[in-house]
């Protein structure tokens, strides 16, 4: 069980690093690629809070936690994501 968990944690970490680089690229190059502010900002926020979800799920071990705790965490992230996007884009 430990090996599988270790592998999963490593994969999640790699994914988080890649996501970070993508959002950085998106942030700095968006004007060049012609992506408008709205989509760029929305995507950045979405990716960031997806990272937060994964940190909660796999690093904080909420995968194995009772449903209620996982649900509260996920809903919390969802609400903040929507609020952030609304404040930035709308």
């Amino acid at each position: 069980m430990n090996d599988a968990t270790t592998r999963r944690v490593t994969v999640v970490f790699a994914g988080l690093v890649v996501a970070t680089c993508i959002t950085w690229w998106l942030g700095s190059e968006s004007s060049l690629t012609g992506v408008g502010f709205g989509p760029a900002a929305t995507l950045t926020i979405l990716v960031a809070f997806t990272k937060v979800l994964f940190i909660g799920r796999d690093f904080m071990e909420l995968r194995a936690a009772p449903f209620v705790l996982r649900a509260v965490f996920s809903v919390w992230v969802g609400v903040v994501t929507v609020a952030a996007i609304a404040l930035v884009v709308v």
Partner: peptide, 9 residues
Amino acid sequence: ALVYLVSAE
């Protein structure tokens, strides 16, 4: 994400 990236986009 919010302070460094989105703000500067």
